[in-house]
Design a binder for these strands. Structure first.
Length: 1177
RNA sequence: GCUCGAGUGGUGGAAUUGGUAGACACGCAAGACUUAAAAUCUUGUGUCCAUUAGGACGUAUGGGUUCAAGUCCCAUCUCGAGUACCA
């Protein structure tokens, strides 16, 4: 009786659907288990054999868990918003909803192509999905809740104090009551405001401030703009500088965008990884992406250009007022001098005319102020304050602070003090003057001028190396560059900036080797030593990371070292006993030297000490920095979730109603002429909601919005009141096993962790991580078929010279053969190996014909020259020259025309895509020629072998293998077992159908165990010991293998078991029943069929996975491999319970032992009971 | 460059904690059945030497630890993935 897999599989698939066999119960006494596959995007191309690989593995596991008594949730749905459907809509004008539906449910597209439909394809493979829970992200019933989550995020801020997201209402209450002074939030808002400030602001102003706190916010951001796709892309959607989808160029553009403040979660996203059962590689990728670095931020003061020249400007400057307002200041000063207070007047009498050995000026403008008295040489300011100063102390403080920054010391006296005891006042001034050095004495004193007060803030992970700083480098885009550059360097700096800006992102990335930079002419002050440090610009410093500036430590950083060497900047060595003459020493294990208070400390301690000291002295602080950027959340696209947002002017508001905002109809899926996103084409009345403002939001959400929370919706897919009911999410909790590709490491897998943590913070779900255990299935690669074509050309060159040897006519022409030549790949190899010319493959008469034709073709020149064919050389006066050449090109051919590596030429040529095969001559593997036009197929002698290449499986390579064909030919059970049998799930492997016959044969063999020629043939006899051993050995192995997610080895185990039982001619019910159960996760259809034939009425998925019985596995004897010096020589069967000494005796007594001892006596005998014996000679 | 992973027959791969390397399957070869083909079945199949008996060599390469290494350690090479001037 034959194994009719097609019929069996159809019947059981129908049975499962009708009986809802795989429905998951929301409330069950059974323990829960949640098995999830990554969300598929339903493309028109349908599934290829690579897609179901993960689904089969998860299905095996889900079915196994059911047999183990778990209530299993194993759902499937579609991430159905996305770019391809929209691109297709733009091309064909069809609504993406229509094509998406066809891609899922099957049908015929506009061009008449049959679309199989994801659902139909999956059904054919016999998955145990609970289809009642299917979700589609593009369904308004689904995206209603995506919008709802967006609203929650909009209405939240991140409280660093509690380290979680909180409601924005609480923050507003705080602002109202006490301003933001005590708020510790993740925000880009830098100012401090009071409750009064807040309450005095308009709603618009308040909303602007709140925008800086919300976890999703609108801001002008530099984004990756892809002109070809007409939208922005997230960092993870770009690979190698081009868009991941389509490979289009990407440029930087400043746009007003929604962003998600994922950076608030950077630390938790990082630390959360530790508890996850994911591969190290994925964790590493995420760690890398988050990019945490700890260190310090340090501020360097910059010297003014005058001093920076090197020699310094030592003469005190007379004009110290802000040049921008100098005329105002001078006028005011004159006015004040004319009307001094009595105290001012009294003091001036003591100070004027160098009475104190220092020249004082009265009412002299400095910066934007007019202090009462100034000594420019000693940079001392003396102020005499009246009563008015009692109520403006804050302003005075600020003024003093500013003047201090400029290098001035400020002495303040009160009116009464001066009038009461002027001598004491003067003495004080004299004392201070004596302490201060003259500006002429050194160049470290900052001269006055508006150009001061500049600072360079840098971030460093190695504050311990701060004494090794010998220069600083700014990114060419750094805002200080223009200000600090000296006039001498201006031209060079401008040229460098221009060159750097012209370099594209890709150039900058690819050209990391070239060292370039330019000196600004300015110097910074080392905060510890006070040394002058030259400030350079260089494009190895990125404007977008950190502060866009670095303190360069050439001895400890290779890039700084390279830069210093290249520009001949001194390299200070601050490491004890380290040679830095050839390269920088970047390891953190060195001892610090030449570094003041850091000397003799190991790096780790030195880092702490340095940060402490930096903080103490107030020019920096310890800081942690992340590479992770806030995630851009707007797409200028149609086919995505609309935002529940409208605008009044420029201010966005959330729609208050809970109603879903549906995608409005539009006339075209293209941007408007003003460059607005497609949704701008919809009028206000086209939307299903009332827009209370000026307009709706025109952007849509990115692809990752819907997929960031879909695993929650499966728990409660039809709930109209909540995104998921509390009791359901409390029961199902997070995903126990997640199977999918590793390509989402920095996208979906990071974003869904972010949203999960957010929903957890707000108390909606009871867990913080969405996917506890994850397995990344490897890619199944396509095995492309290549056909090689040789173009044969005859090139002719000719030259004619006149009597004076001057060329008067030259030319070039070429003709090719009438037919192309296709070459069997083995012939190509032969030629290559023998290093012969490819043209040797071409028949002589063809080459002669081509030369002849080329000669005739050149008739005009020929007659003109009066020359014969093939004569002449460049030395002759006039000549023709012929040359044959061959160009080898390869093209892909559809793998369905292959039998092994042999091409079925006749069938392939019938396909319009490969019509060119009709025009060619095939050089077969035996060297014979074949042409579809000239010879009949019967005359064909050899075979035509194609080249093979491992590629990504894709339509354009004609190497796609669909599961449907294989299911039709071998059945779903065979496909399932074969895909698992191919190798470890995680590994990448090329697809090859050759081995599938072996797996198919195994299922046929299984079928024959239950049947003979007359039909079903199973008896109730008592099983033998061997039969029980074979079965229980297999039960044990299957359980162990599945539980450690080794999906390939069980298939071998089943084969071994079936082979053994076949050899034993076992047809006993007790054995075969259990075999059916353990096989059912892999081959569910045949298992169900045989289970039914065994007399069971319920589905095998309700059966219980049998427990193996150790008793059947233990044997009385063990076959010991006996080794001599580790080399296995013979086997010796001994009783299991025999002790070590007895085994040793037995082995040494054995006659074969004598042979291997070769007369020597054994030094030592190692006996491992039930394992091995090793004799050391 | 850095990080992670992997290198086992002609091929996919197995060997779970150091204990018989190459299970299972493909492919190939020979044979059986058949008019023939397909299907099916049987046998063989790491490499080399040897008629056999048997032996030598073998898990990318070179060292090491061990009674014993595909497995552990060190160095090197190759391939794959991620990332890329991240301070």
């Amino acid at each position: 009786m034959q194994y009719q897999f097609n019929e069996i599989e159809k019947n059981w698939q129908k049975y499962w659907e009708e009986n809802k066999t795989f429905r998951a119960e929301d409330n069950s006494v059974k323990p829960k288990y949640y098995v999830l596959d990554m969300f598929p995007y339903p493309s028109g191309a349908g599934l290829h054999v690579g897609h179901p690989l993960g689904y089969i593995a998860s299905d095996v596991f889900a079915r196994y868990k059911r047999l183990q008594g778990f209530n299993v949730l194993h759902p499937m749905g579609y991430d159905s918003f996305g770019l391809p459907a929209e691109q297709y809509a733009i091309q064909t004008g069809q609504h993406p909803a229509t094509t998406t539906k066809t891609n899922i449910e099957g049908g015929v597209d506009k061009e008449g192509n049959v679309i199989p439909g994801y659902r139909n394809q999956m059904d054919k493979i016999g998955f145990s999905f609970d289809w009642d829970r299917e979700v589609r992200t593009s369904d308004p019933k689904y995206y209603k809740w995506t919008q709802w989550i967006f609203k929650q995020i909009f209405n939240s801020w991140y409280n660093k104090a509690s380290d979680k997201a909180e409601k924005i209402d609480d923050l507003i209450a705080t602002f109202k009551a006490e301003g933001n002074r005590n708020v510790n939030a993740v925000t880009d808002y830098e100012d401090i405001f009071s409750a009064e400030d807040w309450n005095s602001w308009s709603e618009e102003e308040q909303r602007k401030v709140l925008m800086s706190y919300r976890l999703t916010f609108l801001s002008d951001t530099w984004v990756n703009w892809c002109p070809a796709l007409g939208t922005v892309l997230a960092n993870d959607e770009i690979k190698d500088g081009v868009s991941e989808r389509g490979g289009h160029p990407v440029e930087q553009k400043l746009m007003r965008q929604w962003s998600m403040r994922i950076t608030a979660y950077a630390e938790r996203l990082l630390s959360g990884l530790d508890g996850l059962d994911w591969t190290d590689s994925i964790k590493d990728i995420q760690r890398n992406w988050i990019g945490k670095s700890e260190g310090a931020s340090v501020t360097f003061k910059v010297l003014s250009p005058t001093l920076s020249k090197g020699e310094g400007d030592t003469s005190p400057k007379y004009l110290t007022g802000d040049p921008a307002i100098s005329h105002l200041l001078l006028e005011k000063a004159k006015e004040m001098r004319a009307n001094p207070t009595p105290a001012e007047s009294a003091l001036w009498q003591q100070l004027k005319g160098k009475k104190l050995d220092a020249k004082f000026r009265q009412q002299h403008p400095v910066d934007t102020f007019i202090p009462d008295f100034v000594c420019l040489d000693k940079m001392l300011i003396v102020e005499v304050d009246g009563d008015i100063h009692d109520i403006q102390q804050e302003q005075d403080q600020e003024r003093t602070h500013r003047l201090n920054e400029l290098g001035f010391e400020v002495l303040r006296f009160r009116n009464e003090e001066v009038l009461a005891d002027i001598d004491t006042v003067v003495n004080k001034i004299v004392a201070v003057l004596a302490q201060r050095s003259s500006i002429k004495d050194g160049d470290k004193v900052l001269p006055s001028g508006k150009d001061l007060g500049w600072e360079i803030e840098v971030f460093t992970t190695r504050p311990d190396t701060i004494f090794g700083v010998s220069f600083m480098v700014l990114a060419p885009e750094h805002e200080l560059v223009d200000k600090i550059t000296t006039t001498e360097q201006k031209e060079k700096i401008e040229a460098y900036k221009k060159a750097a800006s012209l370099k594209s992102e890709r150039d900058r990335m690819s050209d990391v080797k070239t060292i370039s930079g330019e000196f600004t002419g300015a110097y910074a002050l080392h905060p510890f030593t006070g040394d002058k440090v030259p400030v350079w610009i260089g494009d190895y410093v990125l404007a977008t990371y950190g502060t866009g500036a670095v303190m360069a430590v050439p001895c400890g950083d290779q890039r700084d070292w390279d830069f210093a060497k290249h520009f001949d900047i001194p390299i200070l060595n601050i490491f004890k006993d380290q040679d830095i003459s050839e390269a920088a020493y970047a390891e953190k294990d060195a001892i610090i030297a030449n570094s003041d208070f850091l000397n003799d400390l190991p790096a780790k301690k030195a880092i702490k000490a340095a940060i402490y000291e930096i903080e103490q002295r107030g020019f920096g602080k310890g800081k942690t920095q992340y590479k992770l950027r806030d995630a851009v959340f707007s797409r200028q696209r149609y086919w995505g979730e609309p935002f529940p947002v409208y605008y009044k002017g420029e201010i966005p508001y959330l729609l208050e109603s809970d109603e879903v905002v549906e995608l409005p109809p539009v006339d075209k899926y293209l941007p408007t002429e003003d460059g607005e996103p497609p949704l701008a084409r919809a009028n206000k009345e086209d939307w299903n909601v009332d827009c209370p403002g000026d307009r709706m939001e025109y952007n849509t959400m990115p692809g990752w919005a819907g997929s960031s929370w879909y695993f929650l919706r499966y728990m409660d897919p039809t709930n109209d009141n909540e995104f998921v009911a509390k009791d359901k999410v409390d029961y199902w909790k997070n995903v126990d096993l997640y199977i999918g590709g590793a390509e989402h490491a920095t996208g979906h897998l990071l974003y869904s962790r972010f949203w999960t943590k957010f929903l957890y913070d707000l108390g909606y779900i009871p867990f913080e991580e969405p996917f506890q255990k994850m397995i990344n299935q490897g890619m199944i690669q396509g095995n492309s078929a290549l056909i090689y074509k040789l173009f044969v050309k005859c090139n002719v060159t000719y030259s004619k010279f006149d009597e004076n040897n001057i060329g008067c006519d030259t030319g070039f022409g070429s003709l090719s053969t009438k037919q192309d030549f296709f070459i069997s790949v083995n012939k190509l190899k032969e030629i290559k190996e023998s290093k012969a010319n490819l043209l040797d493959l071409i028949p002589l008469d063809v080459k002669e014909e081509l030369k002849e034709r080329t000669w005739n073709n050149a008739s005009h020149q020929k007659n003109n020259f009066g020359l014969k064919k093939n004569i002449g050389s460049p030395l002759d006066l006039s000549y023709f020259n012929f040359e044959l050449s061959g160009d080898l090109v390869s093209g892909n051919i559809d793998i369905k025309y292959l039998n092994g590596d042999k091409l079925n030429i006749e069938d392939a040529a019938k396909n319009s895509l490969f019509h060119y095969l009709n025009l060619g001559i095939f050089i077969m593997d035996d060297g014979s020629l074949f042409s579809l036009r000239d010879s009949s197929p019967a005359n064909k002698t050899g075979n035509f072998i194609v080249g093979r290449e491992i590629d990504k499986m894709s339509k354009s390579k004609y190497n796609v293998q669909t599961p449907d064909e294989l299911v039709a030919k071998y059945g779903a059970d065979t496909l399932r077992c074969y895909e698992m049998f191919l190798g470890p799930l995680e590994q990448h492997k090329p697809w090859d159908t050759q081995g599938i016959t072996g797996v198919h044969g195994f299922l046929k063999k299984l079928w024959r165990l239950f049947h003979d020629d007359n039909g079903f043939n199973v008896f109730d006899e008592e099983p033998t010991k061997e039969e029980l051993k074979s079965l229980h050995k297999t039960i044990k192995k299957i359980k162990e293998d599945i539980e450690r997610f080794s999906f390939n080895t069980p298939v071998s185990a089943f084969m071994i078991c079936v082979n053994e039982l076949t050899a034993l001619k076992c047809n006993k019910r007790a054995i075969l029943s259990d075999l059916c159960i353990i096989l059912s996760p892999y081959a569910p259809h045949i298992a169900e069929e045989l289970w039914k034939k065994l007399g069971n009425t319920e589905s095998i998925s309700n059966a219980v996975f049998p427990k193996h019985n150790e008793e059947y596995l233990t044997e009385s004897n063990h076959k010991y491999p006996v080794s001599f010096n580790g080399k296995m020589r013979f086997m010796l069967e001994l009783p299991v319970e025999m002790g070590k000494e007895d085994i040793e005796k037995e082995v040494l007594a054995n006659e074969q032992t004598a042979k291997y001892l070769d007369g020597k006596s054994p030094k030592k005998v190692i006996v491992v009971p039930k394992k091995i014996v090793n004799v050391v000679v």
